[in-house]
């Protein structure tokens, strides 16, 4: 027996156990997301993949599809909340796109474009977070970290290293590195780690190749992320 639910008014098939995100992706429907990466367990922290289900909004990456469920992925109220969540992320960190090597290849930026965000709207917090350039192959700009924990998860679950963790709480939550000095260069992090390649923003960046591909010709410069797909599918072009 086949199962179906309604996604933006379209009858859509699903396999029991699938999340809304998985079922939508299988059906070729894009739901914007940042902390979600199919290689790792659903996380649900960024709240960008909000979809409407009844009178509630839920994260598509953590919510299982139910038979007959009606999911709203496109209404203005859903988009407005996603935009607000993105504006909060931009206000929280230091996202100076013109100065960022990841610009154009950045999933945070691309998702913000997708939702029609023109400005961060809220008063920026301008946190003071020094850059860590101690590693020979990678730099970390903590000001660009959106706390999606993908590097934490990749390092722990894939690389078996536990290089990263989140410390503090509330607005003081921040990414930390496991090494005696707290610096990346002093940790067991290596360029071949999965954790080096999962960051959806410009927080974890390879050195020496920042502008190999000029601005204007980058991943999300010409077509939206809904068509281009996640960074994950284009790693060779980006890193």
């Amino acid at each position: 027996m086949s199962h179906s639910f309604t996604l933006d008014g379209q009858e859509t098939a699903f396999v029991p156990g699938q999340t809304i995100m998985e079922a939508a992706q299988a059906a070729g429907v894009y739901i914007p997301h940042l902390c979600h990466n199919p290689d790792y367990a659903p996380h649900g922290s960024c709240r960008v993949c909000l979809v409407g289900v009844g009178r509630r909004q839920v994260s598509a990456c953590t919510t299982r599809v139910m038979e007959g469920m009606e999911v709203d992925n496109a209404s203005e109220s859903v988009q407005a909340n996603r935009r607000a969540v993105l504006q909060m992320l931009f206000a929280e960190g230091n996202h100076i796109c013109p100065a960022c090597e990841r610009s154009g290849n950045c999933q945070l930026q691309a998702v913000a474009y997708y939702t029609g965000m023109l400005a961060p709207h809220y008063p920026p917090f301008f946190p003071r977070r020094p850059v860590d350039a101690s590693h020979p192959d990678f730099i970390i700009d903590f000001g660009r970290c959106i706390l999606c924990e993908l590097c934490v998860r990749a390092s722990r679950d894939h690389d078996g290293k536990r290089v990263f963790a989140i410390s503090g709480r509330g607005l003081a939550s921040h990414l930390v590195i496991d090494s005696p000095s707290g610096l990346l260069g002093d940790s067991c992090f290596a360029a071949a780690d999965r954790a080096a390649h999962v960051c959806p923003t410009g927080a974890i960046l390879p050195k020496h190749k920042g502008f190999e591909r000029p601005i204007g010709e980058r991943l999300y410069d010409r077509e939206p992320i809904s068509k281009v797909g996640d960074l994950r599918a284009h790693e060779d072009e980006v890193d």
Binding site: I96, P98, A99, A119, P124
Partner: peptide
């Protein structure tokens, strides 16, 4: 960018 979120000059906020 500068009018919208401070831009490059706002990097001095570090």
């Amino acid at each position: 960018a500068c009018a919208v979120n401070g831009g490059i000059p706002a990097m001095r906020n570090q």
